[in-house]
Design a protein around this nucleic acid. Structure first.
Length: 290
DNA sequence: AATGATTACAACCGCCTCACG
DNA sequence: TCGTGAGGCGGTTGTAATCAT
């Protein structure tokens, strides 16, 4: 089914929004809500299509939007979530309050991807056999995976990194990144993040390695997908006893709260993957899903 | 100061999913 | 079951701002 874009309608304005249009949209949404985006512009007196109004509201005008630069902690979170979720920007945004999928997508493409690729392509960089890039963090023993193969992440554009020279206030790009350089990418050492949990639990065993997280290949996901039970909640009993023994029940409770546990297969996969990562366990400990 | 290159980000486009009749 | 409309998502583009030469 092919449908003409709604903005093709005659008279629909395109391009940047004016402050007046913003004010009209804000006033209308605050007064009447946005139950029907398609009807909204006509009712509000805007010469925009509903899709444009929705986008403007969600990405810019919402009162809970957090403006300003991303913090290093937020960037680290994006990197970690992208490692797990791939280009599922809305899913990543759901875990970053006040940030939109569009904003995260932009910061990924303009900042993070290029920086990570810079490190990835440097010869002599220690990588594992599957060439998954790893970044060594400021505290010397904090190591974070940057991209995964199964994440189908956005490194396929083939664009070269521009040979831009360093400028004040800009993140330097040297062939062998120093710890301070790396910290500009992943600088959270005191917040409660996934990686911190990992650090606490696992880092002592991996002090000299670029392998921070255990290797996970695609069989992890294919095993899960092959269960073909997308509507059934995945139970804790669906994971091997050996893995269960590694995970405190309090961790499971907390993760269930975060993930809306059992809603669908994707959620459950994320749930167990995160749990698996936090536990610092070995891949083979998750062998089947119910 | 001029100009071209690069970056940052708002906005658009097309496709997909889901609800509903 | 199928067609349709609407919302949502990810990819891409347009352009203003910034920087380097």
């Amino acid at each position: 089914m092919v449908r003409a874009p709604c903005c093709d309608k005659m008279g629909m304005k395109k391009g940047p929004w004016t402050p007046q249009e913003d004010q009209i949209l804000i006033s209308y949404v605050q007064k009447y809500g946005h139950a029907n985006w398609r009807a909204l512009p006509r009712q509000a007196g805007l010469s925009r299509c509903g899709k444009s109004c929705r986008l403007r509201w969600i990405n810019y005008l919402r009162p809970d939007i957090k403006r300003g630069n991303f913090t290093s902690e937020e960037e680290e979170t994006i990197i970690n979530l992208h490692e797990m979720l791939g280009n599922r920007w809305s899913a990543i945004a759901a875990r970053l309050p006040g940030r939109t999928d569009n904003e995260i997508k932009n910061v990924w493409h303009t900042h993070l991807k290029k920086r990570l690729k810079q490190y990835q392509t440097k010869p002599g960089t220690k990588q594992n056999t599957k060439s998954k890039p790893k970044i060594k963090c400021e505290s010397s023993d904090n190591i974070v995976p940057i991209q995964s193969e199964f994440g189908n992440s956005s490194s396929s554009t083939g664009n070269d990194i521009p040979a831009r020279t360093e400028t004040p206030g800009q993140t330097p790009m040297s062939p062998q990144p120093s710890s301070s350089e790396i910290s500009s990418i992943t600088n959270a050492t005191t917040t409660t993040t996934d990686r911190e949990v990992n650090n606490t639990d696992v880092k002592a065993e991996n002090m000299d390695s670029w392998e921070y997280f255990p290797e996970i290949d695609e069989s992890f996901w294919s095993d899960a997908m092959s269960s073909d039970n997308s509507s059934a909640p995945l139970t804790f009993e669906g994971v091997s006893d050996e893995f269960q023994s590694q995970v405190p029940s309090s961790s499971v409770d907390a993760m269930e709260t975060d993930y809306g546990y059992g809603q669908n297969l994707d959620d459950a996969m994320e749930f167990w993957y995160d749990l698996f990562i936090k536990a610092g366990g070995e891949q083979e400990l998750i062998t089947e899903f119910h």
